[in-house]
Design a binder for these strands. Structure first.
Lengths: 113, 113
DNA sequence: TCTATATTTCGATTATTCCGGAAATATCGA
DNA sequence: TCGATATTTCCGGAATAATCGAAATATAGA
């Protein structure tokens, strides 16, 4: 990942509604969730949500597929891993001790035990 | 970390110059770097950089201390760990397999071996 | 104290983003 | 085909952010 792409992803996530949408989708897993249900849960108008989803999609953070009348959105985990990798990689200027705290952060958070 | 704080941090990083500044600082380690040198390296005017540094500081991502006429800025690693933890924690909706790719990402990136 | 250096603050302009109403598009079932 | 549902697109105004010149503040050294 290059810096401009990282900025795009960070910008997409740097908004209360969009971050809430993204959290919802990563929790929904690969099943994803239709736009309408997202709108109800986050409590935003459908057209406003659509704009937010477009921004997340352009940033590569979510994917979409049509299922009948619904469009199902789901989180792109690869993109998140790339973004985290970019941020974590930044912390190492040849000094492993600096970013040692980041090793195994997933376990520390009580996630993916 | 709560969502509003995460949004603040993400917003602060969602700007090309500020992300570049932050990368510079995490590489500089705890020694930090004076504002003037940052401005030269990133190639932005001192007053513009000062605004960016204020934003990063308010987001809790950097710290500052005075040294003579210079003000030394340094990255706050705890805040970054909290932010990454927040994002990673999001990936686990009771489904450890979803975010398994994030476990040990630091090593994967070739960082902090 | 005076001057130079380092950084910040202020103020104004420009650019960008956010939001919602209205209309358009797509799909399903009758 | 028709009407209902789901979602997107278009467009305008309002709010927010970015940038820079100029002035202000703080420190060091002569």
């Amino acid at each position: 990942m290059q810096l401009p792409d990282a900025v795009d992803s960070l910008s997409a996530l740097a908004h209360a509604s969009r971050l809430a949408v993204y959290r919802l989708l990563v929790r929904a897993g690969s099943d994803g969730m239709p736009a309408g249900e997202i709108a109800r849960r986050i409590d935003v108008l459908p057209n406003t949500l659509s704009n937010h989803l477009t921004i997340l999609d352009r940033a590569g953070l979510v994917q979409s597929r049509r299922d009948g009348r619904s469009i199902i959105y789901s989180a792109d985990y690869d993109r998140m891993r790339d973004l985290l990798g970019f941020l974590i990689a930044d912390c190492c200027g040849g000094r492993p001790e600096i970013c040692a705290p980041f090793v195994g952060i997933a376990e520390e958070v009580g996630c993916c035990a």
